[in-house]
Simulated assay, not measured.
Amino acid sequence: MEQRKPTITNVVVEDNQATLTMKVDASILDFRGHFTHFPLLPGVSQIDWALFYAIEHLNTPPLFKGMEVIKFQEPILPNATVELSLVWDDEKQKLAFKYSSQAADRLVVHSSGKMKLGE
């Protein structure tokens, strides 16, 4: 079976927030063809994973209703270890997400955004 999701190494869930530490394995199918000489994790994969893990760990509604804000700042490369932060606002039915990692003494934000969800 083809690998579509990262290897999760840690999960912390508190109320309406979840933080997942993951290894973005080089064997993930989404790296193929994106791009041949410089593979990076597609933005659509990052959005898909944020929604998938929000449903799994925060019990958010499963229906994607659109993006409100999204920024792709630094590529996520094969075998990177990243942290996915999820915050669910039940009243507004909005999920905020952020992918980040540590590089030496600084925090690198790879991408962030907000999506509208519903039933």
Score class of each variant (00 low, 15 high):
57 H>S: 04
48 D>V: 12
35 F>D: 13
52 F>N: 10
35 F>P: 13
41 L>K: 01
31 F>D: 00
37 H>S: 11
26 A>N: 15
47 I>H: 04
38 F>E: 12
37 H>M: 11
36 T>N: 14
48 D>C: 09
41 L>M: 09
64 F>T: 01
35 F>Y: 13
36 T>Q: 14
31 F>W: 00
63 L>T: 10
42 P>E: 07
62 P>W: 02
42 P>G: 09
29 L>P: 01
54 A>W: 00
44 V>K: 14
41 L>H: 03
62 P>Y: 03
65 K>A: 05
56 E>R: 08
65 K>E: 10
29 L>Q: 09
48 D>L: 09
47 I>T: 12
51 L>C: 11
39 P>L: 08
42 P>Y: 07
57 H>W: 06
54 A>N: 00
62 P>L: 02
38 F>R: 15
54 A>F: 01
36 T>A: 14
33 G>N: 06
27 S>G: 04
65 K>F: 03
60 T>L: 01
58 L>D: 08
53 Y>P: 04
53 Y>I: 08
41 L>T: 03
61 P>L: 11
34 H>Q: 06
47 I>F: 07
60 T>E: 00
34 H>Y: 08
49 W>G: 02
36 T>V: 15
49 W>K: 02
32 R>C: 10
41 L>Q: 02
58 L>W: 07
44 V>I: 10
64 F>P: 00
41 L>N: 02
30 D>A: 11
38 F>A: 15
33 G>E: 06
31 F>G: 00
57 H>P: 03
55 I>A: 02
56 E>P: 03
41 L>C: 05
33 G>R: 07
42 P>R: 08
57 H>Q: 05
31 F>L: 03
29 L>V: 05
33 G>M: 05
34 H>S: 06
28 I>N: 01
30 D>H: 10
55 I>R: 02
35 F>H: 15
57 H>I: 01
46 Q>I: 06
40 L>W: 05
53 Y>A: 06
41 L>D: 03
43 G>Q: 10
46 Q>T: 07
